[in-house]
């Protein structure tokens, strides 16, 4: 940090404050260390280190002496990455989750936004009940939600056999959207609560004037509320995109309901099946590429929405 003590324009007060701060920091070094050490050590061990190990593993390749010789790991440079880029199943799975995300994320967030706005408007009675009803599915783990919906989609056991005996939700054409429905069911309420909390934080004086001018609730929502809660919506969008690319539990469960979900259905399923072959080096390379892809995409969304807000 640069200190401007030499600059004559700096007000005296600021200088003393800065100096005091500096001494305080040195004095409390022990306390600061006590506060940050536990988290930092664990973060290093279980976030940073695994990423480094994955990168390292992805640069190795297994060599055997002869066909049945002892396998040894040797440095292979970007051999695994070359395989990743030639792996059609991997890119097909990426394309599949992207298709999924392009449709599912807007529907889910649109519904979450609509419900949050309705809960925040004077149009609805019984808000407490609805808030809890919509949020309840979030308490259902993805695996359990997938098991439940597996029964609900079943042509024989479903309460809606009138529909499910006609339409095969678990067939190759629809299973992706059947999974999208499970994810939507679980996460609408969660996103709704985040958006709703942001709406509650808006002081109501801001739209008092609009209300007195006779603006409708829809108009107030569109012109005043939505622009003010853009940061919350961006946050939910980024978490949703990350979630989409990481899709695993739901399709993994659906594998036992239908053969339409293969072991390369989503990138993480592919990583899991590659790792259990076992080909950990290739699986590590898949992981690294997927992580970079996820990071790049959420970063792009962040930048895009920030630019739009300016």
């Amino acid at each position: 940090m640069t200190t401007d003590i030499a600059t004559p324009a700096t007000p005296k007060k600021a200088v003393t404050k800065k100096v005091r701060r500096a001494t305080k920091a040195t004095k409390n070094r022990g306390a600061v260390l006590f506060f940050i050490a536990p988290f930092s050590v664990l973060f290093l061990l279980f976030y940073i280190l695994p990423i480094l190990v994955a990168i390292y593993q992805s640069l190795l390749t297994v060599e055997r002496e002869g066909t049945f010789g002892k396998p040894t790991e040797v440095f292979g440079g970007f051999v695994q990455y070359a395989r990743v880029f030639q792996d059609d199943a991997f890119w097909a799975s990426i394309l599949r989750v992207l298709t999924f995300g392009v449709v599912q994320v807007p529907i889910m967030l649109g519904l979450a936004l609509l419900l949050a706005l309705l809960l925040d408007s004077p149009l609805v009675r019984g808000k407490r009940f609805f808030r809890l009803a919509f949020f309840a599915p979030y308490a259902v783990p993805g695996v359990i939600a997938a098991v439940m919906w597996g029964f609900l989609y079943s042509p024989k056991l479903s309460p809606f056999t009138a529909i499910t005996s006609e339409i095969n939700f678990l067939g190759a054409d629809l299973v992706l959207w059947a999974i999208a429905n499970v994810v939507t069911w679980v996460f609408v309420g969660y996103n709704m609560i985040i958006i709703y909390s942001a709406l509650l934080a808006i002081p109501s004086e801001i739209y008092e004037a609009a209300r007195l001018d006779g603006a409708s609730q829809a108009r107030i929502a569109w012109s005043i509320k939505i622009p003010l809660i853009t940061p919350a919506i961006t946050l939910t969008a980024i978490f949703s995109i990350i979630g989409t690319l990481q899709l695993l539990a739901e399709p993994q469960v659906f594998k036992s309901f239908t053969s339409a979900v293969t072991s390369t259905f989503t990138p993480n399923l592919l990583i899991y099946s590659t790792a259990s072959v076992p080909n950990v080096n290739l699986a590590a390379a898949f992981s690294v590429v997927l992580a970079l892809f996820t990071f790049a995409l959420s970063f792009t969304v962040l930048k895009f929405t920030q630019r739009k807000a300016d």
Binding site: S40, A275, V280
Partner: peptide, 26 residues
């Protein structure tokens, strides 16, 4: 430090599962 931790927010738990497996198997 804070920015590194924030980067960690963007790394989902599922993405770390395999790397963690590699660490623990070491």
């Amino acid at each position: 430090l804070f920015n590194v931790v924030l980067g960690g927010v963007l790394v989902p738990a599922t993405a770390l599962a395999l790397p963690l497996f590699l660490v623990f198997s070491q």
